[in-house]
Design a protein around this nucleic acid. Structure first.
Lengths: 182, 182
DNA sequence: CTCAATTTTCAGAAATTACTGAAAATAGTG
DNA sequence: CACTATTTTCAGTAATTTCTGAAAATTGAG
């Protein structure tokens, strides 16, 4: 399975970025290859194209499935498993955000919550808890908002984004409206 | 510089999460310690408290400064450098988002842009470019929106977040308003 | 159920990343 | 400028992570 220079460039960029995104090089490349491929690929094709060991590809695919970035397909008359990347970019963004939240944010939130339950017995701890409270409040606010936003359908979301900062005019407006009512 | 169990727990959580956040264990712990400390700390205090080598602390602090997560201070009569973590949580969030964008998103955007300039000479490349176009559009939309949002002052932002998903009612409303005007 | 195709697991090798101590550089003081 | 406190650099080592090949497990067809 040779691959065009254009695809090669895309794939290797994802490999290089992988580490910054918290996935490893091979996983990044596997995803990139599946993402641009016009049809679903099986593990052997991927291994051959990227010149990775078959087992490495197997592990990479497992991880991509855990991230829900890749979906399994079967074709009749062929018992191998084929993989493809969901097409709706918004959907991908949503699952990515959700997974990251679960892995990178939830654990910290729960640690903070339990630290804030502790009885502080001295100046130091009181100050530390105050700081933790700030951090907790910020994270909660951000993630709750994110949840709300994510629940919107793609069309509404898109509209919202299209508005950009003009949202703030809208806010001024509703403020005035509420005040006028009183 | 001994440290209370509460602080110890916070610091070591940041160490463990570090890898998921794209920073290493020591950098995470150093930040956490500075973050909860009631006063600025110097490198020796940090090294002693966390039992890291002095040089490791020096490197960690350099990285934290590059991330703008930590700020340098001097005290008269003492020529050592002291470090403290900016207090405004929103500010921290903003710089963090900005840095991540610069490091994790910009490079991909520019790669995509140049891949999209290429003349596609075959089916495969045409399909790959279509996929890249999707990805590029999504990332651009998200980051532009983020820029707009970030430009809002903390108070407005906070209000916006407080509204959560009710934003969507507001959108419906403006839609009707526009339509009525025509 | 048997057999072959396919996928998964896992121990060890290879590669990468983090950490240290010693030495070099820098900066403040008199 | 000379001296010392302090920070930074960097080569080597330690620790961690990634990758592979061989073997085990699973799956589906007949």
């Amino acid at each position: 399975m040779p691959v065009t220079p254009l695809v090669r460039a895309f794939v290797s960029h994802f490999g290089e970025m992988g580490s910054r995104w918290g996935i490893n090089r091979t996983v990044g490349q596997i995803y990139a290859l599946i993402y641009v491929s016009p049809r679903a690929l099986n593990a052997d094709e991927i291994a051959e194209t990227l010149e990775f060991s078959r087992s490495n590809v197997s592990m990479g695919l497992k991880e991509l499935q855990a991230w829900k970035l890749v979906r399994l397909r079967h074709f009749s008359g062929d018992r191998r498993e084929y993989f493809e990347a969901p097409g709706d970019a918004w959907e991908v963004f949503r699952t990515l955000a959700e997974e990251r939240r679960r892995r990178e944010i939830e654990p910290t939130l729960s640690m903070l919550r339990s630290a804030l339950m502790e009885e502080a017995g001295n100046e130091e701890d009181l100050h530390a808890q105050a700081r933790m409270r700030d951090m907790h409040a910020l994270i909660e606010q951000l993630t709750n908002w994110f949840d709300d936003i994510q629940r919107l359908d793609s069309a509404t979301l898109s509209k919202l984004m299209g508005m950009g900062a003009t949202v703030h005019k809208l806010l001024d407006f509703t403020d005035k409206f509420k005040r006028a009512k009183r």
